[in-house]
């Protein structure tokens, strides 16, 4: 076989990569650059980006969204970890049915989940009726951050639980037995052996959960009124106030912040892995 000269090989590689590069440029880099430029093209110019940090309405919305997403991620991971490990370790009648039911929320769009939160905790909701009967006053939280939090957790648990279960099933059961033989209590086995082994799964599932919560719109839109998360704010700026530049700037920042938080989490986990080794 005739050998190809290094220069020609490079050329060949560039030629073969060109289609992928073109798609990447056309559908990722260009739109992103355009969005970024749009954000600085309004009446305030590049000040739109500064406004996000300076104007309380925008800044508070940004902080609220990040905190909400972080909280949803933490609670979802906790719930999924406990129930996922339980489902992997125990075999009982109806187990597969239970797994199927737990993953059911996957099929619903955010709007339907918002609707379900209203049915549960809305003005005519189940919790309201029960609390009125018991205490004489209706507990209504569907239209607040609490309602949104509940909806997002409900929405996120199935994805995370499946990832945790897949990882836990691959875990060597002899690892836990070895730890126990050395005197570790069940809690110590979980803390020292099981959770570290599941960390990669938590990281990837948590990242997806966080990113989804940052950008979720349907649920927030259904619950509306008193919620000011970033996607809602973008919608308001864009459709109601026709402030396209501000909407673009907010969109860009939403993406950037999400990406930054995920990168931070990843590098933190990576460094702790390296430190342990």
């Amino acid at each position: 076989m005739p050998s190809i000269l290094p220069a020609r090989r490079t050329l060949l590689a560039v030629a073969l990569l060109a289609p992928a590069a073109a798609v990447f440029g056309a559908f990722f880099l260009l739109p992103l650059a355009r969005l970024f430029a749009l954000g600085g093209g309004g009446a305030e110019g590049w000040g739109a980006y500064a406004a996000i940090l300076v104007e309380p309405r925008y800044f508070e919305s940004l902080i609220q969204t990040v905190l909400l997403s972080a909280g949803v991620t933490a609670v979802t991971l906790a719930i999924s970890c406990v129930s996922g490990l339980f489902l992997v370790r125990n075999r009982f009648p109806g187990r597969s049915l239970l797994v199927a039911v737990l993953t059911f929320p996957l099929v619903f769009p955010g709007v339907v989940i918002g609707f379900m939160v209203i049915m549960l905790a809305g003005r005519q909701g189940l919790i309201g009726t029960v609390t009125e009967g018991l205490f004489g006053s209706r507990l209504v939280f569907a239209y607040s951050m609490a309602g949104l939090f509940l909806g997002y957790v409900y929405f996120s648990v199935p994805r995370v639980i499946l990832t945790v279960m897949a990882a836990a099933e691959k875990l060597d059961p002899q690892l836990a037995e070895a730890a126990r033989s050395l005197g570790a209590s069940p809690w110590q086995v979980t803390a020292h052996v099981v959770l570290p082994a599941l960390k990669p799964a938590f990281l990837s599932a948590g990242a997806i959960c966080f990113a989804t919560a940052m950008g979720a719109f349907g649920t927030a839109f259904t619950l509306a009124t008193r919620i000011d998360v970033l996607p809602m704010l973008i919608y308001t700026e864009f459709t109601l106030q026709a402030n396209i530049a501000m909407a673009a700037a907010l969109s860009f920042v939403l993406g950037a912040v999400t990406w930054a938080v995920l990168a931070l989490a990843r590098s933190f986990a990576g460094s702790s892995v390296a430190a342990a080794g």
Partner: peptide, 18 residues
Amino acid sequence: IERRNVGMVFQSYALFPN
């Protein structure tokens, strides 16, 4: 097992990778 004070060696080594 955790209170029997035994030492155990497994076919799969079962060393803690972390």
